[in-house]
């Protein structure tokens, strides 16, 4: 089981976290290698969090927010989208596979979509393999 990659997910409180809860109340099953951190808005999710997750040994980072136009704070998700594109480039430059990070829109009613997304992303990360960031960092310091 330890071979399973670990995924850290940042979910916005209003849409995605609610959607993930809905997957739970509806008892949709998905991979257990995902660990969720709740933030109020996807606009709060900055590169620091993502990089920290990789530094601590995450193999993939998933970011979810409200669908475009649905943001509880009007446009936080757009901010997140912009940052995400930059971040992807940055991650590539670091020598990591840019597919290790992913941004998806999950609404409060999309429990099923969330479960599918987790499985899907988890398979993708499995394909890419385990991240060496943590080990490398530890060797350095």
């Amino acid at each position: 089981m330890s071979k399973d990659p670990t995924i850290v997910a940042f979910l916005c409180n209003w849409c995605s976290y609610t959607g993930a809860d809905l997957a739970g109340t509806s008892r949709m099953k998905y991979n257990s290698n995902i660990r969720v951190i709740r933030v109020m808005c996807s606009g709060r999710i900055g590169p620091t969090f993502v990089l920290k997750a990789f530094r601590e040994g995450a193999d993939g980072v998933l970011i979810c927010g409200c669908h475009p136009g649905d943001c509880h704070y009007h446009e936080g998700n757009y901010k997140c989208l912009r940052r995400f594109h930059l971040l992807q480039k940055y991650v590539s430059q670091l020598g990591m596979d840019k597919d290790r990070i992913r941004l998806e829109w999950i609404s409060a009613s999309e429990g099923k979509e969330f479960a599918e997304l987790v499985n899907n992303f988890s398979n993708k990360i499995k394909e890419i393999g385990k991240s060496k960031v943590r080990k490398t960092m530890e060797e350095w310091t």
Partner: peptide, 28 residues
């Protein structure tokens, strides 16, 4: 929402109850 906290280049802004410190230690 905390968007400004993330945008702040100098780290002067924090969102109460969702501070960088709190979230980063949560990741740890």
């Amino acid at each position: 929402c905390g968007t400004c906290a993330t945008a702040c280049p100098s780290g002067a802004i924090s969102t109460k109850h969702f501070t960088d410190e709190q979230i980063l230690s949560q990741i740890e």
